[in-house]
Design a protein around this nucleic acid. Structure first.
Lengths: 331, 331
DNA sequence: CTGAAAGCGCTTACAG
DNA sequence: CTGAAAGCGCTTACAG
């Protein structure tokens, strides 16, 4: 378990550092090092449990084999699932993930990215607060691979993989309509994010097109639990027959409020959510949702990262838009 | 955003690398470097956005300011919350977290730890599969700080922070008894973990002490969803009036099964869970649980890590047992 | 087939 | 007050 250095190892195997390094890196055959010599080096390495010093290697190679992941909140099931997927898909590579949560705070986002950059991460995957466009673009333009996911900057060439938010909400609305619901309440977030705006736009477009009553409401991210309760109660009084939640955690909060007030789902008020959650299939009734393809989001983020890491740079347009899937349960 | 080196920076500021390094590391005053000179260096650093190369610094200092976190599954809400807490508590330090999921596979655990060690992490925080005692002890004994949490090795000096699992289950049982339930079904995991054994022991001790019917059942981790369904149905047929789930995800699965069979909670069958979940307060009725103090677990893990990192080494016994809290809701 | 040497970008005794 | 130099542990042209 002790750290023996390449130099010591070479000494014990009676070869130079060069030879030892070559063999240890699997270049023994290419450099036609004697089989015996190779064996000897490998044996000594095993015997002393040789661990090449990663910092030294990173320093010489100029790569850290590390990717920085920046999300709003790693405790949020969507992001922790993304992290899990990234990690699993990276498991058979040399790459590791460094991660941090911004808590939707842009200062913290910049500090986090800065920290990762100081550590010379080879690439950045970020679900941005969308308040750091110039900063992130500067990084990207300086040659550091960047992939945005979940949130992106619409007027920017920054590579990103997102979901078609507008269509996602549409699917939910159509579904509700197929259940003959017309007074659909919408509970969203007061956040300057395009992902959010798109969702809200879809609802508002539908509202206008159908001259439906305006049951569009938003709450603040920092205080969503309390505000959600207020907004939901009010909507219920207004006589909505369906509630569409913009995110899974809003839905969770809203359902809590609804049932505490004695409203029954789906009879009184039907409930659907943008974004799935482990519990939604457990509820009675099971909550119908639009599901974000977590594995494919992760997969495509890595695809864009590796494209940028390669010689030629990005081959594709850098924009990947995935289709959110309607998962019909009981609501 | 370009990487300018210390040498270049020194050149532009017309000082030696030594002086520049000293000033940049806040040792300017200690070494009585001219105020003017200091200003000049700082100005140049800011102007060229100087980022000291982390690999180089790690190499010279022999520390990477990185802690490796190993958990069974980062997508599990318990572990992602731990990760979030660790990260937040580490936010005002220089430390960063590298993390990986073992998926309860001990080979993967060893590979993961090995990878982290290759990267010279300064410490390891691990929720072990509990099948790698010798390996982890060897690491610990070689001087690398290690803290186990959630799961530990009972006959080992490895520092750990755990929860009193036996008492946790007891609290749940007492609660159920206070609700006049006597036919309590137990759904647990077929895993060789002491945390699990303790929970199961608590139930079995109670069962024997009270001569209660044997409603103790276990399922395999890899296939818990399907098996849980079978076990729960059977228990329901056996006429249990309460179901005690060993983990939050078992509870989630069990509730799904129960309600699909038309059983009503808490009237027909009361349900409680070891381990909380975001949805448990949303369910109707709210699920009573024993809550694991996530923030305090994280806090104590870091306490033990930093103790080991300090000169004198571990000051305390290295064993921290936290009290799980009964959170009474509607069940 | 193998080795001596330079270089990656820092930090830190050691001098003066 | 400041600098020259060694050293951290690797990799990789360059020689022979």
């Amino acid at each position: 378990m002790q750290n023996i250095s390449l130099e010591e190892l070479a000494g014990k195997a009676k070869v130079s550092k060069t030879t030892a390094s070559l063999v240890l890196n699997g270049k023994g055959d290419r450099y036609k090092i004697n089989k015996d010599t190779q064996q000897r080096i490998l044996r000594v390495a095993a015997e002393y449990n040789y661990r090449p010093n990663f910092s030294a290697r990173s320093l010489t190679k100029g790569r850290t084999m590390t990717i920085g992941l920046v999300v709003p909140n790693i405790a949020d099931s969507f992001y922790s699932n993304i992290a899990f997927q990234l990690e699993q898909q990276l498991a058979n590579t040399e790459y590791q993930l460094l991660m941090g949560s911004t808590r939707e705070n842009s200062e913290r986002e910049e500090a986090l990215i800065n920290t990762f950059l100081n550590r010379q991460v080879d690439a950045l995957i970020v679900a941005t607060t969308q308040k750091k466009q110039a900063y992130i673009e500067r990084i990207y333009n300086s040659g550091i691979p960047v992939v945005l996911f979940d949130r992106h900057y619409p007027n920017s060439l920054l590579p990103h993989v997102i979901v078609d938010n507008y269509r996602g909400i549409n699917k939910l609305i159509y579904h509700l309509q197929s259940k003959s619901r017309t007074n659909i309440g919408y509970i969203g977030l007061e956040l300057q994010l395009d992902a959010i705006k798109e969702r809200q736009l879809a609802y508002n477009d539908w509202m206008k097109a159908t001259s439906s009553p305006d049951f569009f409401r938003t709450v603040h991210y920092e205080n969503y639990q309390a505000e959600c309760e207020g907004v939901v109660s009010q909507l219920l009084q207004n006589g909505v027959d369906a509630l569409l939640f913009e995110t899974h955690y809003l839905a969770l909060e809203g359902i809590k409020c609804m049932t505490s007030k004695g409203f029954h789902c789906p009879d009184d008020v039907n409930v659907v959510s943008f974004g799935d959650h482990q519990a939604f299939s457990v509820f009675t009734p099971g909550i119908t949702v639009v599901h974000q393809p977590v594995a494919r989001i992760a997969e495509n983020c890595l695809k864009l990262v590796f494209e940028q890491l390669k010689e030629g740079g990005l081959q594709s347009s850098g924009e990947i838009i995935l289709e959110p899937k309607l998962v019909i349960r009981n609501t």
